[in-house]
Design a protein around this nucleic acid. Structure first.
Length: 284
DNA sequence: GATCAGGTTTGCA
DNA sequence: TGCAAACCTGAT
């Protein structure tokens, strides 16, 4: 009962490598496995923008269309970018197919707590190390679901350090206990405005502004939030002369941020600095 | 073996 | 406010 869709602005490889999610892997060059929200999904890239989703039409509509944000008009969203912004335009062109996911807040919160001072590869390894002993089994794969907050809340710091979490162990534990006890109701946060949402998330030990903004963007679809990490700080410093352009990007600043992040991380600004700098000048 | 990595906290001007 | 230093661990 797989479903085949023709999709524009959808590139599972770029989404996998964009660093917004940590449990999507390539099983083969054209097959991707996603574990999210207690489910496993395989996507086959059939070419010509056709993709086969290994799930029912009902599951696609109820879960995965939302997860991959397939009902959003990315052509219009990208077209709304300021035309004078050369670096941004190049990032948007190079990043065709990248989408902002709408992930589970609990898993996203833990994922970005774990991300502190880690590479994407190391974050993925940490996530698996946490899921393997404590996540529920899934059909069709040896990989496990992401553990529930209740499961992790029942552990101690030593258990989590045994998963290789290092100094992040007490952070994850604090998050688990706040969520499991109801002190932090992640579902209810969806109703809050951005600032209140960020403040509530930062109430968790080990969650600062960057992690909170990542959760807001990648789990709560707050597309105007643009997390500033070291890569984006490099963009601001090297491309925009130290002045953040994100305040001027409006409702989709977070989406543009993600394209710029990928662009900077993949190519670096050093690839075409003169060209970009001259384009920036010409446009002003 | 030293250094660094998608950050946060703590301590001290 | 602002700025270091410290923090686990694995990779380069």
């Amino acid at each position: 009962m797989p479903v085949t869709l023709e999709l524009s602005h959808f590139d599972p490889y770029k989404i996998m490598e964009s660093g917004q999610c940590f449990r999507m892997i390539a099983l083969s060059p054209d097959t991707y496995e996603v574990i999210a929200q207690g489910k496993r999904l395989c996507i086959n890239d059939l070419g010509n923008r056709r993709y086969r989703f290994d799930c029912s039409a009902v599951a696609l509509a109820a879960r995965w269309r939302v997860y991959f944000d397939l009902d959003r008009d990315y052509a219009a969203l990208l077209d709304a970018a300021p035309k004078a912004d050369a670096f941004l335009l190049r990032a948007l062109a190079d990043g065709y197919g990248l989408r902002i996911l709408r992930q589970d807040p609990w898993e996203t919160l833990c994922g970005f707590i774990l991300s502190q001072r880690k590479h994407l590869k190391a974050i993925r390894a940490s996530m698996e190390a946490l899921c393997n002993p404590y996540g529920a089994p899934l059909a069709g794969t040896a990989r496990k679901a992401f553990p529930t907050p209740e499961r992790l809340a029942a552990l101690c710091e030593t258990d989590l350090r045994a998963c290789g979490l290092g100094y992040r162990a007490p952070y994850v534990l604090d998050a688990a206990r706040k969520v499991a006890s109801g002190a932090l109701d992640l579902a209810a946060l969806a109703a809050l405005p951005d600032d209140a949402l960020l403040n509530r998330l930062m109430g968790v030990n080990g969650v600062g502004i960057k992690v909170a903004e990542c959760v807001a963007l990648f789990a709560y679809a707050r597309l105007a939030r643009a997390p500033v990490d070291v890569w984006i700080q490099r963009v601001i410093d090297q491309v925009y002369g130290g002045v953040s352009p994100f305040a001027g990007y409006g409702a989709y600043a977070g989406v543009y941020q993600q394209y710029m992040f990928m662009s900077m991380r993949n190519d670096g600004y050093s690839v075409h600095p003169q060209r970009i700098a001259s384009q920036q000048r010409d446009s002003h």
